[in-house]
Design a protein around this nucleic acid. Sequence first.
DNA 1: CGGCATCCCTTGGGATACTG
DNA 2: CAGTATCCCAAGGGATGCCG
Lengths: 115, 115
Amino acid sequence: MSVYGERSAESLPKCPVEVTLTMIGNKWQVLILRELREGTRRSSELKRAIGGISQKVLTSNLRAKEGNGLVHRAVFAEVPPRVEYSLTPVGASLSPVLDAMSAWGESYRASVSHR
Amino acid sequence: MSVYGERSAESLPKCPVEVTLTMIGNKWQVLILRELREGTRRSSELKRAIGGISQKVLTSNLRAKEGNGLVHRAVFAEVPPRVEYSLTPVGASLSPVLDAMSAWGESYRASVSHR
DNA sequence: CGGCATCCCTTGGGATACTG
DNA sequence: CAGTATCCCAAGGGATGCCG
């Protein structure tokens, strides 16, 4: 369990880039954020959308983001059970970073293809 | 060896965010890029600047970025040997992403501290 | 100084089976 | 459907020692 990305508010790295890296966690977590930017998602939806991620890894990374305060987890007492994940305000504030990554990815692919 | 981040120009992920994640590689590699943004650096300088990274890991990640085309490695035939690392134009083009990460890290730290 | 090569440990992560 | 529990493997990464 764990997977990184916890770290209490205190004891943040000095370098702001490192702060972001720490809060973001890892590649899977970025993909989770990317998906949640589109809106609320259920566990199974995330799994399908991300692709190539196992149940276990998805869950542990969602827990990390939850403990992080970047993702909110809503459980509905229904049968069958329903759980919905969404971005917290803090999580949503990461949008500029995702935008920058998305933009760079686009231009990079372009520069690579027509070469 | 390897450490991720290779992947030939072809066969890039469909999602641009994923493209960037793949090219960036991992946390260490981001810190390397962060450092090289300041200018050319020698291996030992990078090691000190990044902190907490071992020789082996530093080297393997530098190799990954080199194979990536984001970092340039210049070897000078001197005694003692000198090796200098710098960003390629493509590597430098990642600046907006690092800027976004830096900015978010700053504001996050701020929001956390005065609370 | 930069960097292979080893040895070895820790962690991420896949697969599968089972429960509420 | 969401999630936990095992089992197990591969990769990341630390520490040392040696070489050009």
